[in-house]
Amino acid sequence: MAAIQVNHLSKSYSGFQAVNDISFEVEAGTVFALLGRNGAGKTTTIELLTGFQKPDTGSVRVLGLDPVKDRAEVRGNVGIMLQEAGFFPDLTAGQTVEIWRDFTPAARAAGEALELAGLTAKAKTKVRQLSGGEKRRLDLALALLGRPDVLFLDEPTTGMDPEARRNIWEVVRDLAARGTTVLLTTHYLEEAQQLATNLAIMDKGEIVVEGGMAETLAARVGRVSFELPSMIHSGELPFPATVRGRLAIAQAADPDLAAQTLLGWASERGLRLRGLEVRTASLEDLFLELARNDEMSQNNAPARSDHGTQSDRPARRGGARA
Rank of each mutant, 00 (worst) to 15 (best):
P105T: 08
V26H: 07
T50L: 08
S225Q: 14
D21H: 12
N293P: 00
A18H: 05
R71A: 14
Q298T: 05
M202S: 06
G319A: 09
R321L: 13
G133I: 02
L130W: 02
P156C: 09
L263K: 10
M160E: 06
E236I: 04
P162F: 14
T120N: 08
G64I: 07
S311N: 10
T96R: 00
L263H: 08
V224W: 07
A196P: 01
E115M: 07
L288G: 01
G275H: 14
P302M: 10
R316L: 15
D139C: 11
V74M: 14
I46E: 01
A28W: 04
L228K: 05
E191L: 09
V74L: 12
D161W: 13
D66R: 12
M1A: 13
A259F: 05
A196D: 00
G146A: 08
M213E: 02
K204L: 13
Q298D: 13
F226W: 14
Q260W: 08
T197R: 12
A214P: 01
T43D: 09
R137Y: 08
L183F: 11
D256H: 12
G319Q: 03
T125A: 14
L237D: 09
K126P: 00
T242V: 14
E210D: 08
T96V: 03
A141F: 00
F88Q: 04
T242R: 14
E227D: 12
N7Y: 07
S59I: 06
S12M: 10
R178H: 10
G264F: 03
A93T: 02
G275D: 15
L183M: 15
R108C: 04
A250W: 03
P238C: 12
K135Q: 12
P238G: 11
D312P: 08
T186Q: 05
E227R: 15
M81R: 00
T261N: 15
A258Y: 02
T57C: 11
A117W: 04
H187Y: 10
Q194H: 14
E227F: 02
G308W: 08
L144R: 00
R321C: 09
N38G: 05
I80M: 00
G211I: 05
S23M: 03
K42F: 07
W265K: 11
A192R: 10
R137N: 13
E25V: 06
Q251M: 08
Q95V: 00
K42W: 09
E227Q: 13
S230N: 09
Q194A: 15
R292F: 05
S59K: 11
Q310H: 13
N7S: 15
P89L: 07
N293R: 14
V31G: 00
K124Y: 04
A107T: 03
R304K: 15
A109D: 15
R137H: 13
S282T: 15
T157C: 08
E134M: 15
L183G: 01
G308T: 07
A301S: 14
A85W: 01
S234G: 04
A301N: 06
G29R: 10
S14T: 12
A143K: 01
A28H: 04
I232C: 08
G146F: 01
D256E: 15
E190M: 07
N198Q: 15
F52K: 11
Y13C: 07
A143T: 03
A110C: 04
K126I: 06
P105N: 09
P255W: 01
L63E: 06
H8N: 13
T261L: 12
T125F: 03
E170I: 05
E134S: 13
V243T: 06
E112L: 04
G79I: 01
F88G: 00
L263N: 13
E73I: 09
K122Q: 14
F226M: 11
M202W: 07
